[in-house]
Simulated scan of single mutants.
Amino acid sequence: MSLARVHNFSISLDGFGTGEGQSHDAPFGHAGEGLHEWMFATGFWHKMIGRPGGTGGVDDAFARQFTPGIGAEIMGAGKFGPPGWHEDPEWKGWWGPNPPFHTPTFILTHHPRPSIEMEGGTTFHFLDASPAKALETAREAAGGQDVRIGGGPTLIRDFLAAGLIDHMHIVVVPTLLGRGVRLWDGLEGTEKDYEVEATSSPSGVTHVTFTRVGL
């Protein structure tokens, strides 16, 4: 059975995975891009966007685990676009003509639409389904490889609550957001099902990995 994995998902010290007030011009609401600056500095990210340079070290090593072995992704409607994107038939996500996923990518939404084939191997599919059913569909498309659970925080929380996450990489960023969408609400005791390891980085973030016990 392929695994369901979360990678490079950043949260604030107070547990928020995105800020309040998401819009077309503010994909992460009032949080801006502050939760992701650690990743934007890495060699992995620079290579992904076709720019030379970038840092190595702990952050880069963790960031690079984003891609290997992934055959499909599942993301929430709020990651694909701002509130109301389903009313715009031309909306194709935040990432331009060549999104960084390069696999079949399933968006969970109450407003399904026809699939959109993008450059680079990404095809967006739109599902109105439970986490379990969505994972079953994505695994079929992944061809034996793993499925990345891409976020946002509500989607990851729903998959955790359903017991469907096998491996999870959470990056704790030393900032306080105060408002937005929290990851951990309602998940008390979840850590008991996982082996948990924490690695500090000179950048100030802490990489926390959760691997299902017995995996």
Rank of each mutant, 00 (worst) to 15 (best):
84 G>E: 02
82 P>L: 03
88 D>H: 09
19 G>F: 12
56 G>M: 04
25 D>S: 13
120 G>N: 06
37 E>H: 14
65 Q>C: 09
104 P>G: 14
12 S>T: 13
150 G>F: 01
51 R>L: 15
195 E>W: 15
38 W>Y: 13
135 L>E: 08
138 A>G: 04
199 T>K: 07
19 G>Y: 10
62 F>P: 01
213 V>L: 05
85 W>I: 05
84 G>A: 08
176 L>T: 12
55 T>R: 15
75 M>Y: 03
17 G>T: 00
151 G>L: 07
190 T>I: 14
196 V>S: 04
85 W>C: 04
111 H>A: 12
56 G>S: 06
165 I>M: 06
134 A>V: 00
188 E>Q: 12
206 T>L: 09
47 K>E: 15
142 A>N: 05
145 Q>L: 15
211 T>I: 12
168 M>T: 00
108 L>P: 03
91 W>E: 00
142 A>G: 04
3 L>Q: 11
161 A>V: 07
18 T>V: 11
196 V>W: 03
108 L>W: 01
110 H>E: 13
178 G>M: 04
119 E>S: 13
189 G>C: 05
209 T>N: 00
6 V>A: 02
37 E>P: 01
128 D>P: 06
150 G>M: 10
47 K>M: 13
75 M>H: 06
137 T>W: 06
51 R>P: 06
200 S>I: 04
79 K>R: 15
125 H>I: 04
94 W>K: 13
148 R>F: 11
93 G>K: 04
159 F>V: 06
52 P>A: 08
131 P>Q: 09
49 I>R: 15
88 D>L: 13
5 R>H: 05
52 P>R: 04
177 L>N: 06
43 G>D: 11
186 G>K: 09
133 K>W: 05
205 V>E: 02
17 G>I: 08
156 I>N: 05
166 D>N: 08
42 T>V: 03
59 D>A: 14
50 G>A: 09
162 A>R: 02
53 G>R: 09
54 G>N: 11
131 P>D: 11
1 M>E: 14
198 A>W: 01
204 G>T: 06
210 F>I: 05
187 L>G: 02
42 T>H: 01
115 S>C: 08
25 D>A: 14
78 G>R: 15
72 A>V: 03
98 N>M: 14
181 V>H: 14
198 A>K: 09
111 H>S: 12
65 Q>D: 13
63 A>L: 13
67 T>K: 05
50 G>M: 02
103 T>W: 00
124 F>I: 13
140 E>S: 10
43 G>A: 07
8 N>M: 07
132 A>N: 02
81 G>N: 06
111 H>M: 01
196 V>P: 01
54 G>D: 05
114 P>T: 09
201 S>F: 01
131 P>W: 03
35 L>P: 10
53 G>H: 04
43 G>S: 10
190 T>Y: 11
49 I>N: 08
146 D>Q: 01
9 F>T: 12
20 E>G: 03
83 P>G: 11
37 E>M: 13
70 I>P: 01
168 M>W: 09
104 P>H: 02
179 R>M: 08
185 D>K: 08
97 P>S: 15
202 P>K: 10
137 T>S: 14
140 E>D: 08
141 A>Y: 11
56 G>E: 02
69 G>S: 07
36 H>R: 07
195 E>N: 12
46 H>F: 10
84 G>L: 09
121 G>Q: 11
75 M>L: 13
214 G>P: 04
212 R>Y: 05
162 A>Y: 00
152 G>Y: 02
124 F>Y: 14
214 G>M: 02
150 G>K: 00
